[in-house]
Amino acid sequence: MKSVPLVAVIQFPGSNCEYETKRGILNSGMDSCIYRWNQCRELRDSQPDAYVLPGGFSFQDRVRAGAVAAKERIMDLVFSEAAGGKPVLGICNGAQILVESGMVPGWERGRIESALAANHISGRSGYLSRWVFLHVAAKAQQICPWLGKTGNGIIPLPIAHAEGRFVFSEENRERASSSAALKYCDEKGIESSDYPVNPNGSFLNLAGIMNDRGNVLAMMPHPERAFWMWQLPPWIPGEWGDRRDQSLRSGSHADTKGPGSLFFMSLADHFRGER
């Protein structure tokens, strides 16, 4: 591993969250570089310690979100690195690419065993932007390098997607809960399958799933959009709302980290532990 861990951010044609994702990694004390979809050799030669597939609209979600990007050559490398245990995070469109690559839940190597289908909301279709609340599954905190420092609190993050509903086939419904990493809940931590607590009809209120080993995490909410406290809406309730008020009062608002930083700081912590 490098003295300062290098996290590669993969830019697909149509990605649009690569720059703020890179900033989040840098602000967590790690190194980061953006690699274009056709920079396979540069990516391999730089031997990154972890990979992030950022949000956006790779290939404009044509055919199905993530389906076309999953077949890009650069994913061969990400796939084999994940199999070797390197941490991989897919955010939003990145999560869709991981699902369409079969990297999560990844029960049978290379097989597509889940889907991120169009949001299912009564009376509404298409894109949905809103802030949601999450809690982290206990097992995931232990084994997932992106979640080690997330704690037991309720985490507010924004979602922004049209296709974010995790689906599993009937025979895998039982097994799916073992892959749960992040689940939608209300501001008090209570799960519900009703809109808007579960904003898209996701199975088991899943907001993020991981592979069995825990090194690959696919999440629909955007941590990089809540990296700083000042990115939180003024109305956010609960603990993070109180912390936001506190940072405003103390004059540290510009530099106080927000709930989204936990995911990147977890990885930095993970690498410190390995060293």
Binding site: N16, E20, R23, G126, Y127, L128
Partner: peptide, 29 residues
């Protein structure tokens, strides 16, 4: 209306539509 729009991409948004009388962004990291 706003629920269809992405107001937070680029990670520079401080006030989204409806939170203040004007949207506020912090455009230069």
């Amino acid at each position: 209306v706003w629920s269809y729009y992405d107001s937070e991409v680029q990670g520079i948004t401080h006030f989204r539509p409806g939170e203040a009388d004007a949207c506020v962004i912090v455009p230069i990291p």
